[in-house]
């Protein structure tokens, strides 16, 4: 337990000290959202309708891009070798790293949502609802993405190949995330079901992600 807490603390410290890793994710999120009106036109009614979809796509891409180096940095400097030799199961180490990543990269996205909701003409309730769906759904994105990040280490490849492999797996999260957000904007009655499924997806990811990531890391170190 002390080992995992130490790892959590180290990863957060490193992320906060090195060039604001968390900030770049939020900045990317902001830019994606700002680009949208240029693509679809500054029609506020249309933006209000597309708002949840835009926010979710932005969050999806931001989490995918920031996850790329989740394990690669530790692999490059040899930390991963030592972590596998520690007396803590590799699955828990992967889980801890993912949680640390979500705290520094996922949580800021959710904090930024109200500001971005303003730009997309979402009213107060809708913004809170979208933020809530992101809170329930972004862990699932992190846990799916961490499989890709572990494969990146095993394959010595990153970038596009991983996006191609991981994005289809995150379709369910996108579907239910946008559905829950839309329900909140249009008809609050339909909000509960997709939100619960979103939570279920995050919980399933919590189990599958670390198992798969540890399996690919264990074979990918040599």
């Amino acid at each position: 337990m002390t080992a995992l807490l130490a790892l959590l603390r180290r990863d957060i410290q490193v992320a906060l000290r090195v060039g604001g890793g968390a900030l770049i994710g939020v900045l990317f999120f902001l830019i994606v959202v700002v680009l949208m009106p240029f693509a679809v036109g500054p029609d506020l009614a249309l933006l209000k309708k597309l708002g949840p979809a835009i926010l979710w796509l932005g969050a999806l891409l931001a989490s995918l891009l920031t996850l790329d180096r989740l394990f690669a940095a530790d692999h490059d400097d040899g930390s991963l070798d030592l972590l596998t030799m520690s007396r803590t199961p590799l699955e828990l180490i992967c889980l801890t790293k993912a949680i640390a990543h979500w705290l520094v990269a996922g949580l800021p996205l959710i904090v930024a949502t109200p500001i971005l909701g303003l730009l997309l003409n979402l009213d107060g309730d809708a913004t809170v609802a979208v933020a809530l769906t992101l809170l329930a759904g972004t862990p699932a994105l992190t846990f799916t993405g961490m499989i890709g990040a572990a494969l990146a280490v095993a394959l010595r490849r990153g970038g596009l190949l991983l996006a191609v492999l991981v994005l289809p797996l995150s379709i369910p999260v996108l579907i239910f995330g946008v559905a829950a957000s839309n329900a909140a904007v249009l008809e609050p009655a339909g909000f509960g079901a997709p939100l619960s499924i979103l939570c279920a997806l995050s919980l399933a990811g919590l189990v599958i992600g670390p198992l798969a990531a540890a399996a690919s890391l264990r074979h990918g170190l040599d």
Partner: peptide
């Protein structure tokens, strides 16, 4: 090396 990664991805899939 590819086999292990592909196997993990196939099972996740």
């Amino acid at each position: 090396r590819a086999a292990r990664a592909a196997a993990v991805l196939t099972l996740v899939g």
